[in-house]
Design a protein around this nucleic acid. Structure first.
Length: 487
RNA sequence: GGCCCCAUGGUCAAGUGGUUAAGACGCUGCCCUCUCAAGGCGGAGUCAGGGGUUCAAUUCCCCUUGGGGCUACCA
C-alpha cells in the first residue's frame, strides 16, 4: 500500500549449515508474506561461502522445508532468474570485480596479519579494557612492505577501510531510526585469504546486484548493517530498505537452541505437525493481525501481512500455543490424511506392521478416529491408541484397583459378559444400550457401570469413549480383557 | 568491557497523553458427559523500577535494571 508494488524484491538467503532452524523459517515466511502481499518477488539465495560448514545436503533440506511450508520463490536456486547465479560460491568472479575497484580506489587494502598477530592484538586491547578491533596495522603498507610480506609466504586478506568519525544512520522498517558511530567499527575483512568473500561483503554485492528493495532479516544482523552500508556507499550502490525482525527465544528467554526442544522445521514435520499450523503459528510470532482472529490460512496471511505490525521485541517460542493451533488444524483434517500421518508413529511404536491388510487398515483408521481429539500432533497418537492394542491390561494405580473391588462390580461384569456372549457383533449403539440396560437392571448409576468396564478393559480411569473402544476391540477381546482383569 | 536493539499478565500480544488496558495460549471454576479430551459459559492474572515533561502518563524524555544481538579470515 502506497509502495510501488511491481518492483518489490525481497530475498531469503540462508546458509546451508545444518538443520533448517525454525527462526530461519520465520524469516523466510515474513519475506514471502511481504512479497506476496505486494505482488513482489522472493529470491532464494544460498550463502555458502563458509566452505567448512556448508553442505549440499543442508541446502536440499532448506528447500524441502520451504516447499513443505508452502513458501515458494520466484528467482533463485532451482528456478533460476536473470540475476543469477544464486549460490554465492558461484558468484566469485562478480565479487572480484568490485574488490578490484575498492582496492584501486584505496577504500580497501590488503592485510598480511596472521591469526596469531591478530589474536595477540585482541588480547592486549582487552587487557587494557578496550574494544577488541583491528587497529589498522596494514592500513598504509608501501609496495616494498607488501613485497616483503608476500615473500614471507603470507596470504593477505582484504580489509575495508572504515572512515573515521562518521555517524551511520539508517531507517529500519521495524525499528525506525538506528545509528552507529564508525569509530566503533574496525577495518573489517571483506575477502578471506582463500579469496572467498566474507558474509558482510558478499551480502551487499548480492543484494545490490539482485536489485533487492527490502532486506528483511533477523535482528542478529542489525549490528552488521552499518558495515554493509559503508560498503554500499563506497561502491555508490543504492541502499535497500532494511527491516530487522526480532529473534525467537526459548522458554528461558535465551536464543532458541537444541536444549529448548525441537528447533528445526524437519523435526516439527517428523513429530506430526501440519505445515499450515506451523506457518500460522510462526506468523503470529512477532507479527500481529488486525482484529481478534488468530487462525489464518496462508492466503489470508498474505492478504493481512504488513511490516508495520511487526513487533520490535523478541518473542518466546510457546510450544503450547503451537500445539493448540496444530490440534485445531488436525481436527479439520480428513481421517485418511490423519491416518497417513499416524502410520509411521504407530509403526515406530511397534503397534502395527509395515504391511497392513485392507481390513486392518480400516481398523487402524477407526482407532485413529477414536483418539484424534486427544492429540496435538501425530506423534502423540500411539500413547493414546495404546489401549486399543495392548490386551495385557494392568491397573494404572490403587484407584483403578479399588474400582474393581466395589461389591457391585462382579454382577455388572457377569451381566455384561452374559449379554456379550449372546451377541455376534457389537456396535457403539449396542454398547451404549447394553450398559444402560445393566445399570437399570441392577439399579446402578451410569458411573457404576461404565467406569468398572472401562477400568477392566484398559486399567485406566480415562480414555476414549467405550462406545468407540468396545466395537473396535470386538467381542472376543472385550470378553478376554474383562476375564483377565476380574481374575 | 564497548556499541546497538528491546521492555504491557506465565507466554504471544492490541492499544492510547484522559480506556472498565482488547484478544489468544496456558492456568482455573461451572456446564455437558461413563472418564479424559473436545465443546459452551465464567474467573484470576499485566503496563519492570526511579526520576522528569504535563492539568493528566502505560503512552513522551532521561537514568537504572533486566533480556538479547554484534564486536571472527561464521553467517
Amino acid at each position: 500500500m502506497g509502495m510501488s508494488t511491481e518492483k518489490i524484491r525481497v530475498r531469503f538467503a540462508p546458509s546451508p549449515t545444518g538443520p533448517f532452524h525454525i527462526g530461519g523459517a520465520r524469516s523466510a515466511l515474513f519475506n514471502w508474506l511481504f512479497a506476496r502481499h505486494y505482488g513482489g518477488k522472493l529470491i532464494l539465495r544460498i550463502e555458502d561461502t563458509d566452505l567448512e560448514r556448508s553442505s549440499r545436503e543442508s541446502e536440499e533440506n532448506i528447500k524441502e522445508a520451504l516447499r513443505w511450508l508452502g513458501i515458494d520463490w520466484d528467482e533463485g536456486i532451482d528456478v533460476g532468474g536473470e540475476h543469477g547465479p544464486y549460490r554465492q560460491t558461484e558468484r566469485l568472479p562478480l565479487y572480484a570485480e568490485y574488490t578490484t575497484r575498492l582496492l584501486e580506489s584505496g577504500k580497501a587494502y590488503r592485510c598480511y596479519c596472521t591469526d596469531e598477530e591478530l589474536e595477540a592484538e585482541r588480547q592486549s586491547l582487552m587487557a587494557k579494557g578496550l574494544m577488541p578491533q583491528y587497529m589498522g596495522k596494514c592500513r598504509n603498507l608501501s609496495a616494498e612492505d607488501e613485497k616483503k610480506l608476500i615473500s614471507e609466504g603470507r596470504k593477505p586478506t582484504i580489509r575495508f577501510r572504515v572512515p573515521e568519525n562518521q555517524t551511520i544512520t539508517f531507517h529500519d522498517a521495524v525499528r525506525e531510526t538506528v545509528s552507529f558511530d564508525s569509530n566503533g567499527v574496525g577495518d573489517f575483512v571483506i575477502v578471506k585469504s582463500d579469496g572467498f568473500p566474507v558474509y558482510n561483503y558478499a551480502v551487499v554485492l548480492d543484494d545490490a546486484l539482485m536489485k533487492i528493495t527490502h532486506v528483511i532479516r533477523a535482528e542478529e544482523h542489525l549490528s552488521n548493517t552499518p558495515r554493509q552500508i559503508l560498503i554500499y556507499q563506497a561502491l555508490g550502490l543504492p541502499l535497500p530498505e532494511f527491516g530487522h525482525i526480532s529473534l525467537i527465544l526459548g522458554k528461558d528467554r535465551s536464543k532458541m537452541s537444541k536444549r529448548h526442544g525441537a528447533t528445526s522445521v524437519e523435526q516439527y514435520k517428523a513429530l506430526g505437525y501440519l505445515p499450515e499450523a506451523v506457518v500460522n503459528f510462526l506468523a503470529l510470532l512477532g507479527w500481529s493481525p488486525p482484529g481478534e482472529e488468530e487462525i489464518f490460512s496462508s492466503a489470508e496471511l498474505v492478504k493481512l501481512f504488513s511490516l508495520d505490525h511487526v513487533a520490535k521485541n523478541p518473542a518466546v517460542f510457546d510450544i503450547d500455543k503451537l500445539n493448540w493451533i496444530n490440534s485445531l488444524y488436525l481436527k479439520k483434517l480428513d481421517l485418511d490424511s490423519l491416518t497417513d500421518m499416524a502410520l509411521p508413529h504407530l509403526k515406530a511404536a511397534g503397534m502395527i506392521a509395515d504391511d497392513l491388510s485392507t481390513e486392518r487398515m480400516e481398523w487402524v483408521r477407526q482407532v485413529v478416529g477414536a483418539v484424534r481429539d486427544y492429540v496435538s500432533f501425530a506423534a502423540q497418537i500411539p500413547e493414546h491408541a495404546a489401549v486399543f492394542f495392548n490386551d495385557d491390561v494392568t491397573m494404572e494405580n490403587e484407584e483403578t484397583t479399588a474400582i474393581l473391588q466395589d461389591p457391585d462390580v462382579p454382577q455388572v461384569m457377569d451381566e455384561f459378559l452374559a449379554k456379550l456372549g449372546a451377541m455376534e457383533t457389537i456396535t457403539g449403539e449396542q454398547v451404549h444400550a447394553t450398559l444402560k440396560a445393566i445399570g437399570k437392571e441392577l439399579k446402578l448409576g451410569g458411573k457404576k457401570v461404565f467406569m468398572p468396564v472401562r477400568v477392566a478393559l484398559t486399567g485406566k480411569m480415562h480414555g476414549p469413549e467405550l462406545v468407540s473402544l468396545i466395537p473396535l476391540l470386538g467381542i472376543d477381546r472385550t470378553v478376554a480383557r474383562i476375564r483377565h482383569s476380574m481374575s
